[in-house]
Design a protein around this nucleic acid. Structure first.
Lengths: 319, 319
DNA sequence: CTGAAAGCGCTAACAA
DNA sequence: TTGTTAGCGCTTTCAG
């Protein structure tokens, strides 16, 4: 790998001059610029990012912390930030925690060691000490990490109400709210609150929360048991994956009304029949990045939380 | 952010000593080790990775190049390598190309600039000049990138035969092979070859390839048209996502036998009814990493391709 | 407009 | 067992 010195030598100039043309800084004669360019091309020169980062300036890298990348919602979230950051010439460092606090902690260290300029986090461990007073600008995604960390998220309560109202229109006698995770974890609670607000008497509303830390078969078994024991006209899930799991327990004709939450493009394309709430991922990511950049430029406004409006997506009946 | 000098000062030793305890190298008195540890803890010291990388040694980073991260197969592929690499104390740099050769090229540069130790690539652009004689160890995943690059993949032909045989058992009169992408692109061709080998006369076999670069609606329209025009007893798709798209065009009772290919855990969990071929992701990733490491340690064996055995996954009927 | 030289944080000889 | 010192590749004053 050629270095800046090689280029300088080949072009017959000093390294400082090469640095200047790389960064397009200061005054250069068209002639030198051309010479240097030629040398760089000939040597397939690539500036060494490590050396560049060593100066304590910005590394132009943002860490993105996610529970996993298999859930289509997180996958789309990552894709969205990655594309937006890429357009801004930022590198994205993906950190998946698999729900292991240990791994999250290690990734937090790793991000520090890599001198990331900022962190966007959407995990379930608000109690990690490292989040208490973050050393780099951090924004939480749809989760409250700490009172000192701004958060961007959806208006989950409104989303819950949209779903609840939609279900209520079908005049169910009895329905189930199925939380994909312990309900005390944000953002589920507002979602459920919204649903309940819309499901007024005489609708009977049951509620079950799946243990977040159990493996899929255990969760499936719980769902199966709950569904078999009662006759529900509607099942309102707090996320799409739980919803499609529920759907599998019914044959097409006998299925009650099942709804999800999150509304990733993947789900809309491959489960077009599912009614769900669409989170405005594009806007959410744009806002998160904006907050990060404000904070990076020292433009520290006071810590706030943002709740962006959501939309109802009614599942298309398969003809 | 504290530096090694700060730690040395605080512990009353030289930076070399600190470096030694960080890397656990050479002989240290228990006493000094403890002093240094204490100083590091007190200062929340994190070694700066950029500085460390500057020495031209390994960066302990491998780049993973994928078309996207939305497709559950790629998501699981990423998750698998990431976990394996993490266990080996490697960082993973995810590069998603979105099918844009330009973006892939930029990421290839970025990886070089970051001095990655190796690259695992699973994209569709074998003609990128950068792959012709890679400057860092590279292995292709289920794709032939260049004659100079080793590749690990599944035994796609055998997988195609498994699927074909399974379909043949149902004695279809007419069936369709639906390629999710231009068929000249590996690894589709062997898959199709395997299917055809098993679908012998008198079975009538049609074949259609979807344009890879068209947006989803166009592809959907093509599928719809093809399915409506003929009466198929079976539709064999070259990947799972195409398969579930096909399923949507039929109501449950009238659906012909539809099969997929790839068999990610996601698909098996959320489309348990789909018959597909499971790629041995764990072994594939392990092998890819092993090849990379051999190549990194200069242990360059000759370039070879590996085809790992696949298994048939028969979809469970929903009871 | 261009060059010389210092220094970023860390590692690795080489000394002691 | 520990310290001194010379870089790694690049940016950035400060001189010319």
């Amino acid at each position: 790998m050629a270095t800046i010195t090689d280029v300088a030598k080949k072009a017959g100039v000093s390294v400082a001059t090469v640095s200047r043309v790389i960064n397009n800084r200061g005054y250069l004669s068209a002639n030198t610029k051309a010479k240097v360019q030629a040398a760089m091309d000939a040597l397939h020169y690539q500036p060494n990012i490590a050396a560049r980062n060593l100066h304590g300036k910005a590394t132009h890298t943002v860490g993105v912390v996610l529970p996993d990348i298999i859930n289509p919602f997180y996958a789309e979230l990552f894709q969205t930030v990655e594309q937006q950051l890429f357009a801004l010439h930022y590198q994205t460092m993906l950190c998946t925690t698999n729900g292991e606090p240990e791994k999250e902690k290690m990734y937090l260290r790793l991000m520090a060691a890599n001198q990331v300029d900022g962190i966007i986090s959407s995990t379930h461990n608000p109690d990690l000490a490292d989040y208490q007073n973050p050393t780099v600008p951090t924004v939480a995604f749809d989760r409250v990490l700490s009172p000192t960390i701004p958060m961007v998220g959806s208006d989950n309560q409104a989303g819950g109400e949209l779903i609840g109202q939609y279900v209520a229109q079908h005049q169910p006698r009895r329905c189930l709210i199925l939380a994909g995770s312990q309900e005390d974890l944000a953002p589920l609670s507002p979602r459920i609150a919204g649903m309940r607000a819309a499901l007024t008497a005489p609708i009977q509303v049951d509620q079950v929360a799946l243990p977040f830390d159990q493996p899929a078969p255990v969760r499936n078994q719980l769902i199966r048991h709950q569904l078999a024991a009662h006759d529900y006209d509607a099942v309102l899930c707090t996320d799409d994956l739980t919803a499609i799991t529920v759907c599998e327990f019914y044959s097409d004709g006998q299925r009650p009304l099942v709804t999800g939450f999150d509304g990733s493009k993947f789900i809309r394309q491959y489960y077009p029949g599912l009614t769900t709430v669409i989170q405005p991922l594009d806007d959410l990511c744009r806002l998160a990045i904006q907050l990060l950049r404000n904070s990076m430029t020292g433009n520290a406004e006071e810590v706030t939380t943002y709740q962006l409006p959501v939309t109802l997506h009614v599942g298309q009946k398969v003809e």
